[in-house]
Protein backbone atom coordinates (compact mmCIF):
# COMPACT_ATOMS: atom_id res chain seq x y z
CA UNK A 1 0.00 0.00 0.00
CA UNK A 2 1.36 3.41 -0.86
CA UNK A 3 2.28 5.35 2.22
CA UNK A 4 2.84 2.30 4.37
CA UNK A 5 6.54 3.07 4.76
CA UNK A 6 5.84 6.63 5.76
CA UNK A 7 3.32 5.55 8.39
CA UNK A 8 5.80 3.03 9.78
CA UNK A 9 8.44 5.73 10.00
CA UNK A 10 6.04 8.11 11.70
CA UNK A 11 5.22 5.46 14.29
CA UNK A 12 8.93 5.09 15.01
CA UNK A 13 9.26 8.84 15.54
CA UNK A 14 6.21 8.88 17.79
CA UNK A 15 7.67 6.05 19.85
CA UNK A 16 10.89 7.98 20.31
CA UNK A 17 9.06 11.17 21.17
CA UNK A 18 6.96 9.48 23.83
CA UNK A 19 9.92 7.42 25.00
CA UNK A 20 12.02 10.49 25.72
CA UNK A 21 9.66 11.35 28.59
CA UNK A 22 10.10 8.05 30.33
CA UNK A 23 13.47 6.62 29.38
CA UNK A 24 16.73 8.21 30.48
CA UNK A 25 18.42 6.39 27.63
CA UNK A 26 16.58 8.31 24.96
CA UNK A 27 17.32 11.67 26.47
CA UNK A 28 20.91 12.25 25.58
CA UNK A 29 21.42 15.99 25.86
CA UNK A 30 22.12 18.07 28.97
CA UNK A 31 21.77 21.79 29.65
CA UNK A 32 25.44 22.58 29.44
CA UNK A 33 26.61 25.37 31.72
CA UNK A 34 24.33 24.35 34.57
CA UNK A 35 24.52 20.62 34.03
CA UNK A 36 27.73 18.86 33.17
CA UNK A 37 28.70 15.43 32.00
CA UNK A 38 31.71 14.24 34.00
CA UNK A 39 34.84 14.16 31.84
CA UNK A 40 36.22 10.77 30.95
CA UNK A 41 39.24 9.72 32.95
CA UNK A 42 41.52 9.51 29.94
CA UNK A 43 40.35 12.79 28.44
CA UNK A 44 43.09 15.10 27.26
CA UNK A 45 43.03 18.77 26.45
CA UNK A 46 46.31 20.63 26.93
CA UNK A 47 49.54 19.67 28.69
CA UNK A 48 50.63 20.84 32.12
CA UNK A 49 53.80 20.41 34.19
CA UNK A 50 53.80 18.43 37.41
CA UNK A 51 55.46 19.47 40.64
CA UNK A 52 55.84 17.52 43.88
CA UNK A 53 55.55 19.03 47.32
CA UNK A 54 54.30 22.47 48.27
CA UNK A 55 56.61 24.73 46.25
CA UNK A 56 55.88 24.72 42.55
CA UNK A 57 59.30 25.95 41.56
CA UNK A 58 61.33 23.66 43.78
CA UNK A 59 59.22 20.62 43.02
CA UNK A 60 59.06 20.90 39.25
CA UNK A 61 59.93 17.53 37.74
CA UNK A 62 60.97 18.92 34.39
CA UNK A 63 64.72 18.96 33.83
CA UNK A 64 64.61 21.02 30.63
CA UNK A 65 65.96 18.20 28.50
CA UNK A 66 64.09 19.73 25.55
CA UNK A 67 62.98 16.37 24.12
CA UNK A 68 59.35 17.44 24.08
CA UNK A 69 60.27 20.72 22.42
CA UNK A 70 61.93 18.79 19.62
CA UNK A 71 59.24 16.14 19.17
CA UNK A 72 56.16 18.38 19.36
CA UNK A 73 54.72 18.25 15.82
CA UNK A 74 53.55 21.89 15.52
CA UNK A 75 56.52 23.18 17.59
CA UNK A 76 54.49 25.04 20.16
CA UNK A 77 56.74 24.41 23.18
CA UNK A 78 59.55 26.82 23.96
CA UNK A 79 62.14 26.03 26.63
CA UNK A 80 65.10 27.92 27.98
CA UNK A 81 67.48 26.04 30.23
CA UNK A 82 68.54 27.46 33.55
CA UNK A 83 72.15 28.35 34.27
CA UNK A 84 72.19 26.92 37.80
CA UNK A 85 70.98 23.60 39.16
CA UNK A 86 68.49 22.49 41.75
CA UNK A 87 67.95 19.04 43.26
CA UNK A 88 65.38 16.83 41.56
CA UNK A 89 63.10 14.29 43.24
CA UNK A 90 65.92 11.84 43.97
CA UNK A 91 68.15 14.64 45.18
CA UNK A 92 70.43 14.78 42.16
CA UNK A 93 71.22 18.34 41.12
CA UNK A 94 69.59 19.04 37.76
CA UNK A 95 69.02 22.02 35.58
CA UNK A 96 65.47 23.27 35.39
CA UNK A 97 63.52 25.26 32.80
CA UNK A 98 64.13 28.98 33.22
CA UNK A 99 61.39 29.48 30.68
CA UNK A 100 58.79 26.94 29.62
CA UNK A 101 56.03 28.26 27.36
CA UNK A 102 53.29 26.41 25.55
CA UNK A 103 51.23 28.26 22.99
CA UNK A 104 47.89 26.53 23.35
CA UNK A 105 46.49 28.34 20.35
CA UNK A 106 48.85 26.15 18.32
CA UNK A 107 48.90 23.01 20.45
CA UNK A 108 46.74 20.27 18.95
CA UNK A 109 46.38 18.13 22.07
CA UNK A 110 48.18 15.20 20.54
CA UNK A 111 49.92 14.00 23.71
CA UNK A 112 53.21 13.26 21.98
CA UNK A 113 55.10 15.45 24.46
CA UNK A 114 53.70 13.29 27.27
CA UNK A 115 54.74 10.09 25.56
CA UNK A 116 58.31 11.13 24.88
CA UNK A 117 59.08 12.76 28.24
CA UNK A 118 61.42 10.43 30.13
CA UNK A 119 60.84 12.11 33.50
CA UNK A 120 57.03 11.93 33.85
CA UNK A 121 57.12 15.70 34.06
CA UNK A 122 54.43 16.69 31.59
CA UNK A 123 50.87 15.32 31.56
CA UNK A 124 47.55 16.15 29.93
CA UNK A 125 44.99 18.35 31.65
CA UNK A 126 41.22 17.98 31.35
CA UNK A 127 40.39 21.67 31.74
CA UNK A 128 38.69 22.84 28.56
CA UNK A 129 37.05 26.18 29.34
CA UNK A 130 39.99 28.30 28.30
CA UNK A 131 38.40 30.86 26.00
CA UNK A 132 39.94 34.30 26.25
CA UNK A 133 39.79 37.57 24.37
CA UNK A 134 43.55 37.93 24.24
CA UNK A 135 44.90 35.95 21.30
CA UNK A 136 48.62 36.15 22.13
CA UNK A 137 49.01 36.69 25.84
CA UNK A 138 45.99 34.78 27.05
CA UNK A 139 46.72 31.59 25.17
CA UNK A 140 50.44 31.57 25.88
CA UNK A 141 50.91 29.64 29.10
CA UNK A 142 54.16 30.13 30.98
CA UNK A 143 55.85 27.92 33.53
CA UNK A 144 53.82 29.26 36.46
CA UNK A 145 50.49 28.75 34.71
CA UNK A 146 51.49 25.31 33.51
CA UNK A 147 52.71 24.04 36.87
CA UNK A 148 50.12 21.97 38.71
CA UNK A 149 50.57 19.77 41.73
CA UNK A 150 50.78 16.02 41.77
CA UNK A 151 47.61 15.99 43.91
CA UNK A 152 45.78 17.73 41.08
CA UNK A 153 47.08 15.08 38.71
CA UNK A 154 45.73 12.41 41.04
CA UNK A 155 42.35 14.10 41.09
CA UNK A 156 41.96 14.14 37.29
CA UNK A 157 43.63 10.89 36.21
CA UNK A 158 43.66 8.70 39.36
CA UNK A 159 44.63 5.38 37.74
CA UNK A 160 47.36 6.80 35.56
CA UNK A 161 48.77 8.93 38.38
CA UNK A 162 48.96 5.94 40.72
CA UNK A 163 50.91 4.02 38.09
CA UNK A 164 53.27 6.93 37.56
CA UNK A 165 53.83 7.30 41.31
CA UNK A 166 54.59 3.60 41.67
CA UNK A 167 57.06 3.79 38.80
CA UNK A 168 58.77 6.85 40.26
CA UNK A 169 58.94 5.31 43.71
CA UNK A 170 60.63 2.29 42.20
CA UNK A 171 63.08 4.45 40.32
CA UNK A 172 63.81 6.41 43.48
CA UNK A 173 64.34 3.20 45.44
CA UNK A 174 66.64 1.91 42.74
CA UNK A 175 68.50 5.21 42.73
CA UNK A 176 68.78 5.19 46.50
CA UNK A 177 69.94 1.61 46.53
CA UNK A 178 72.47 2.45 43.90
CA UNK A 179 73.60 5.48 45.85
CA UNK A 180 73.83 3.38 49.00
CA UNK A 181 75.75 0.68 47.21
CA UNK A 182 78.02 3.28 45.74
CA UNK A 183 78.52 4.86 49.15
CA UNK A 184 79.17 1.46 50.69
CA UNK A 185 81.58 0.61 47.92
CA UNK A 186 83.30 3.94 48.39
CA UNK A 187 83.53 3.40 52.14
CA UNK A 188 84.85 -0.07 51.59
CA UNK A 189 87.35 1.20 49.10
CA UNK A 190 88.44 3.96 51.47
CA UNK A 191 88.82 1.41 54.25
CA UNK A 192 90.72 -0.92 52.01
CA UNK A 193 92.91 1.92 50.86
CA UNK A 194 93.60 2.91 54.43
CA UNK A 195 94.34 -0.68 55.32
CA UNK A 196 96.60 -1.02 52.35
CA UNK A 197 98.36 2.16 53.33
CA UNK A 198 98.84 0.89 56.83
CA UNK A 199 100.10 -2.46 55.59
CA UNK A 200 102.33 -0.92 52.99
CA UNK A 201 105.98 -1.00 53.79
CA UNK A 202 107.39 2.16 55.23
CA UNK A 203 109.13 4.27 52.70
CA UNK A 204 112.77 3.63 52.73
CA UNK A 205 112.42 0.14 54.10
CA UNK A 206 113.81 -2.55 51.84
CA UNK A 207 111.24 -4.17 49.66
CA UNK A 208 110.50 -7.63 50.81
CA UNK A 209 110.86 -10.40 48.34
CA UNK A 210 112.29 -8.34 45.58
CA UNK A 211 110.97 -8.49 42.06
Amino acid sequence: MLGEGIVKGMLETAKNFAGSFVSEDRLTTVEYPEQRIPTAENARVFPFLIYDGPDWHAGLRCVACQICEKECPPKCIYIEKSKDKKPDFVGKPQIYPARFDIDISVCMSCQICVEVCPFEAIKMDTEFELATGDRFGGLLLDCRELAKSNEYYHSIHPTEAAEVDARLAEEKKAAEAKAKAAAAAAAQKAAADAAAKAAAPKPGAPAAGGS
Binding site: L2, G5, I6, K8, G9, N16
Partner: peptide, 13 residues
Protein backbone atom coordinates in the same frame (compact mmCIF):
# COMPACT_ATOMS: atom_id res chain seq x y z
CA UNK B 1 14.84 1.39 14.14
CA UNK B 2 16.73 3.21 11.43
CA UNK B 3 15.46 0.82 8.81
CA UNK B 4 11.86 1.01 10.05
CA UNK B 5 12.17 4.75 9.73
CA UNK B 6 13.70 4.79 6.27
CA UNK B 7 14.04 1.65 4.18
CA UNK B 8 10.42 1.29 3.11
CA UNK B 9 9.77 4.99 2.95
CA UNK B 10 8.10 5.84 -0.35
CA UNK B 11 9.60 9.31 -0.57
CA UNK B 12 13.09 7.94 -0.11
CA UNK B 13 12.52 5.33 -2.78
Amino acid sequence: EFEALLTGNEILM
